[in-house]
Design a binder for these strands. Structure first.
Length: 432
DNA sequence: ATGATGCGGAGACGTCTTGT
DNA sequence: ACAAGACGTCTCCGCATCAT
């Protein structure tokens, strides 16, 4: 413990400064690359060969401090400029981008030699693909998880965003058992390509043209992308459809999990609501949560002081499992009073890291257009999930604000954690 | 292209959980 | 003891995969 008194040598300080400078440079490079990956390219229709030099030109025009000198960015852009085939492709970006243009050889996937496991969820770049959780739930609802998995894999392979991929390259990459991105057999690939056509992509004999997030969302009956997008580990695509479904499902939890210095928290949501949103039944929900390490938090509501009337009232109104608690410590006011209490839905803390919202606003605008153009009958149904009212609030102030707007509505705000830390108590407001 | 096989999803049903 | 929601286990059925 005495180590903390040692003063670092000037050389060490110098080295440390250089390290920070380097780290800054790498982070800037990653931001640039990530920004490009986060963007959702407008692959709305079969796009013939996009003129790609313009992208390279744009980046070439960027100031050097954005990481132009960095190996990661340079590797990608050199490919783009097609000046040489001999780049060091140790980094994942480079070999993925190379994939599109050339047949895949086995020598350049060092970043992926050992496929990550489900516990690597927290790992950031490079082994992940961006997922809008509403699209994930849409895949589950429509029972299109299998072709959806292929769509995400193709988006991952197409990090440059041209939106079209050669089928022979795809086949080579994801149906070869020995390759790190093995996804399924050849026959299954044929089935999946057929199954997902018109929803996730369109194709001819040679190529697949990916649809945009907006178009896929529309095809899946998603009216609007909500919450934060998440980083889905590539391992989630590679360990079978079951694991993939688990990730699709729990990514929605991750999307609404709030991370702060005081830890992660999420508002309660009933399993029945999740079943309605995802089409996944309660028992499967639990399996998925266990598979992906979702933390489940029980919640209890504390209502008004017990009187004969309100006991009957509440039992009549809510038909919920009421029980009494005695407020020994005076949490609710005077010590020793008895209050009504009942169980609320659980909260679920997901593990997927958040990603920037990126083009989400634009995607939603496009989606709205598509919905308007689509069948009018669908519009109401599609908006239904969006209009669900907020009834859980992180603190009393926000709850009181909502309460003042609508005193009839039943609201809850977070009160405290029980002493054993396993449960959270919520204060009930309104709803009389 | 097709049949056999095994895994996983989903529903049914019974049990457990919560506080005092 | 309260009672709904959560949870655990079992079974059936459909889908994905593999061998031919």
């Amino acid at each position: 413990m005495d180590d903390c008194h040692i003063t670092p040598s000037p050389q060490l300080l110098q080295a440390n400064r250089r390290l920070y400078a380097l780290r800054e440079q790498v982070q800037a490079a990653r931001r640039l690359v990530a920004q490009r990956q986060d963007d959702d390219p407008p692959w709305d229709s079969p796009v013939p060969e996009q003129p790609q030099a313009s992208v390279a030109d744009q980046v070439a025009a960027l100031p050097s401090h954005l990481g132009w000198e960095s190996q990661a960015v340079t590797a990608v852009l050199r490919r783009r400029l097609a000046q040489s085939g001999t780049d060091r492709s140790t980094d994942n970006q480079a070999w993925v981008s190379q994939l599109r243009e050339t047949a895949v050889s086995s020598g350049h996937h060092s970043a992926q030699t050992t496929p990550p496991t489900a516990t690597d969820v927290v790992q950031p770049l490079p082994g992940w693909v961006k997922l809008y959780p509403d699209i994930g739930l849409g895949m589950l609802r429509q029972e299109l998880a299998a072709p959806g998995r292929l769509w995400l894999m193709l988006r991952y392979l197409d990090r440059q965003g041209s939106g079209n991929l050669r089928i022979d390259v795809i086949r080579e990459t994801i149906t070869t058992r020995k390759k790190p991105l093995y996804l399924c057999g050849r026959r299954q690939l044929r089935n999946l390509l057929r199954h997902g056509e018109g929803i996730f992509w369109t194709r001819d004999k040679e190529r697949v043209w990916l649809y945009s997030a907006a178009r896929v969302a529309f095809a899946l009956g998603v009216a609007r992308l909500t919450g934060r997008p998440v980083a889905l580990p590539i391992a989630a695509l590679l360990n079978g459809v079951g694991q993939f479904r688990a990730h699709l499902y729990t990514a929605f939890y991750s999307s609404r999990t709030r991370n702060s210095s005081r830890g992660s928290q999420a508002m309660p949501i009933a399993r029945s609501t999740m079943a309605a949103l995802s089409g996944v039944g309660a028992s499967s929900q639990r399996t998925y949560e266990a598979q992906t390490g979702v933390k489940v938090q029980a919640n209890f509501a504390v209502g008004e002081q017990i009187t004969k009337e309100n006991l009957e009232n509440r039992a009549w109104q809510q038909g919920r499992a009421l029980f009494e608690i005695q407020d020994y410590r005076g949490y609710q006011g005077q010590k020793g009073k008895r209050y009504l209490a009942w169980q609320l839905p659980n909260s679920y803390i997901g593990q997927h890291p958040h990603r920037p919202k990126g083009r989400q606003k634009r995607i939603n605008r496009k989606l709205k257009d598509l919905v308007m153009k689509g069948m009018p009958g669908n519009v109401e149904g599609m908006n239904e999930t969006r209009l669900r009212q907020k009834i859980y609030f992180p603190n009393g102030k926000l709850a009181a604000k909502a309460y003042s707007r609508n005193p009839k509505q039943e609201l809850y705000w977070k009160r405290q954690r029980t002493r054993n830390g396993r449960f959270v108590l919520w204060q009930q407001l309104g709803g009389d």
